[in-house]
């Protein structure tokens, strides 16, 4: 093996290696079970939002698809898990997988809508699909509970072993495990040749085509995966709260998750997780100060982020990555 080849292999391996901060993040999340026992409900909320944002990152950060209706998949997953638990099987993991499948298939079915046209067409079709589902959910009251929401869910213990407790301890652990496993999977996907081709399509579709990449299948695949992730996030919400509000399909959720991802920075998977932590803490803090006008603040934050410049604001993860890269690069030499 030549020096160059050895160097190249070290560079490629370094991409896939777990970073110190990644491990620290997960350890902190696990430590929270013992250190913050009174905060587990809000932590569960963060974990669910994080998973939802990671799913958006797969299409926005990696494939460059701007969606105004990502909550369609989140809401569909929530209803799928809720209805399954109410009427058939109340075991959470079964419901999780079921919701992932339902949303994933729906993502697959609607993925051709984002293949064609400009950003604007994509915005409209994703938005339209979400509104359509919201309308359906509202009309099909016999199935979904309509405007009153879906209630009457009572989950059985996870895998028949761990019961959801009042303090939300097992609920948090359950959601965290799902987030860790799914982030691990997403990490694997994004570090594969498939992931590399997605990034190429986003950056320069003309050149990507000239390398023989057919963008359609790649986008369809990642869209379906992302939809399944969002569906599972929705399922977690339904299962940990025993309730599905029609609000899961509301427009503001699609906007919220965009904001979450933008706060944390798109395109490196962890943006959704950091964003969810910051977003939830901000919301808690601001809604204590002015409970009704959270919406005003969220709007102001969005405007401010754009005016200041997303790159400048969310440059910190990139900076961190660059620093770590140069360090691992040196180590690799």
């Amino acid at each position: 093996m030549t020096d160059h080849q050895a160097h190249a292999l070290r560079l490629l391996t370094a991409k896939h290696r777990w970073r110190v901060w990644e491990i620290a993040l997960w350890l902190a999340a696990i430590a929270a079970i013992f250190l913050l026992p009174s905060q587990l409900l809000i932590l569960t909320e963060i974990v669910i939002l994080a998973l939802f944002a990671v799913s958006l990152d797969l299409i926005l950060g990696y494939a460059g698809i701007v969606s105004l209706g990502h909550t369609a998949f989140f809401g569909l997953g929530a209803y799928a898990a809720g209805i399954l638990a109410r009427d058939y099987v109340a075991e959470p993991v079964t419901g999780l997988v079921f919701a992932g499948l339902v949303s994933g298939l729906f993502g697959l079915a609607t993925s051709f809508l984002v293949l064609r046209g400009s950003d604007l067409t994509r915005l409209m079709t994703t938005f339209g699909v979400a509104m359509l589902l919201a309308e359906l959910g509202n009309q099909a009251a016999w199935l979904t509970g309509g405007a009153d929401g879906l209630s009457g869910i009572s989950m059985t213990p996870i895998l028949g072993l761990f019961e959801f407790d009042l303090w939300g301890r097992n609920g948090y652990i359950y959601c965290l495990v799902v987030l860790i496993v799914l982030t691990f999977v997403a990490r694997h996907i994004t570090n594969s040749p498939f992931g590399l081709s997605l990034m190429a399509i986003k950056r320069n579709p003309r050149r990507a085509a000239m390398l023989g990449i057919s963008p359609k299948r790649r986008i369809v695949t990642v869209y379906a995966v992302s939809a399944a992730y969002a569906g599972m996030a929705g399922a977690l919400l339904a299962q940990t709260t025993n309730f599905v509000s029609p609000d899961v399909l509301a427009f503001h959720r699609s906007a919220d998750v965009l904001l979450v991802l933008v706060i944390g920075g798109a395109g490196y998977l962890y943006g959704g997780i950091f964003g969810a932590i910051i977003f939830t803490m901000l919301r808690d803090w601001l809604s204590v100060a002015t409970p009704q006008y959270w919406m005003f603040w969220i709007g102001l934050i969005l405007v401010a982020i754009v005016m200041i410049g997303r790159e400048r604001l969310t440059g910190w993860p990139a900076l961190l990555a660059a620093r770590l890269k140069s360090r691992t690069g040196e180590a690799a030499r």
Binding site: L12, T13, H16, I189, N191, S192, P193
Partner: peptide
């Protein structure tokens, strides 16, 4: 034709 492999690390 490896571009569809989504489970193999690049390295």
């Amino acid at each position: 034709g490896h571009g569809r492999r989504f489970w193999q690390p690049l390295a």
